[in-house]
Nucleic acid binder design. Structure first.
Lengths: 212, 212
DNA sequence: CAAATAGTGTCTTTTAGACACTATTCG
DNA sequence: CGAATAGTGTCTAAAAGACACTATTTG
């Protein structure tokens, strides 16, 4: 096994251990098209949902557990962003916090307005303990993911039209995207179901599913 | 402060805490141009250098401490890659490992061949505990960094010629790069000192320093 | 038909790369 | 001079974007 002995030849049990927490930026695109983040009420203000890691628990499971409690969400795939390790970050003691990103369809968020809110990422109130920084990192990460592939986080229920997909990507990017270029970039990465949307004004759009 | 209470309303002190370790892929480009990684001897085989986090210590400082001991290196800038959190990863108990990347000029590595080796990343022996995966992640991260900017890790002593820079980038990338395209991409991001190399065969090359 | 939306052809601009040419040094 | 290396002009191919055109539906 790895020799984690240091220069004084101490081993695992000799040192006090930190508490480990997870904090998560839950991102979603709301009906209006705004990329938004979930924040929860704490004492006097707001912060990202988080919890302490339980014994023998995986980080991703701790994230899911905290979101289950705070927003009634299940079955997602948290992604690690960064470990915040300033020993004086938390006044209750030595706490490492592992920041996560989780993208969630808005329809799967069951938010109790008393304890949680969904706010546009362009309009986040000041948050304590570097949580604003976590959101910035999460947004940048999600945007990078969406730049090259169609809905990698699966925010859109299948099947969908190219228009649906573009509106979603514009919500994530926070800017308009050129329609023709978007189609040419994304269509090769999709599979047409052969069906079209019925009963709408205009030429019926083809329906697609993610193919890769 | 953040409410890290879970659904059972326990707090910080109620749970056992994990040990936290750091493991580091130290990457460098050797004289021959090969991107290489530092591995250290452990009992029967080899692994990445690592250590346990001491009380109140920052992760980056633990990384630097472990490298000081294992390779006599100081003053670098470790970069977090990923937290490995499988509770059964380490048979001595519950250990979270934060994988890091640190790029180091080969000239600053003081390697005692009895306890450490520098091996090309194309020729890494099988390593235990996911350390091979850490190296893959570190290499991909370093290559992404080097794709767009001149020597972002500062592996090359200033001033340098465009040829020196290209040989370094080719070492990191593991492939040849087109000379003219490389120059046109990098020159705007450098500042010419106005000096040239003296006493070499061929037209004397201009010297540059990183400008951003 | 008008309005609305889907889908595409084509032109321009930009960029990466290929290639070849010129420039300047040493021996 | 020839060998070696530095530096650059120019052509081509590929990609992104602008623009406009055609296609198909509802009302």
């Amino acid at each position: 096994m790895t020799e984690y002995r240091d220069s004084h030849n101490h081993t695992l049990a000799d040192y006090p251990h930190p508490s480990v927490a997870v904090d998560t930026a839950v991102l979603t695109v709301r009906a209006g098209g705004a990329l938004s983040v979930l924040i929860v009420r704490t004492g006097d203000g707001w912060c990202l949902p988080g919890t302490f890691l339980h014994e023998g628990e995986r980080l991703a499971d701790a994230v899911l557990r905290s979101l289950q409690v705070k927003a009634g969400v299940t079955g997602l795939s948290p992604r690690q962003l960064h470990v915040f390790d300033d020993p004086h970050r938390d006044d209750r003691g030595w706490v490492l916090s592992v920041a996560h990103l989780d993208a969630v369809p808005a329809s799967r968020l069951a938010i109790d307005e008393q304890i949680a809110r969904l706010v546009p990422v362009t309009d986040v109130p000041p948050l304590p303990y570097g949580h604003g920084e976590i959101i910035d990192l999460a947004v940048a990460t999600l945007r990078a993911d969406y730049a090259g592939r169609p809905d990698p986080a699966g925010l859109l229920p299948e099947p969908f039209t190219l228009r649906d997909l573009q509106l979603l990507h514009e919500g994530v990017a926070g800017t308009a995207l050129p329609r023709d270029t978007f189609r040419r970039a994304m269509e090769p990465l999709l599979r047409a179901t052969g069906e079209t949307v019925q009963g709408v004004v205009g030429k019926p759009a083809r329906l697609f599913v993610r193919s890769i």
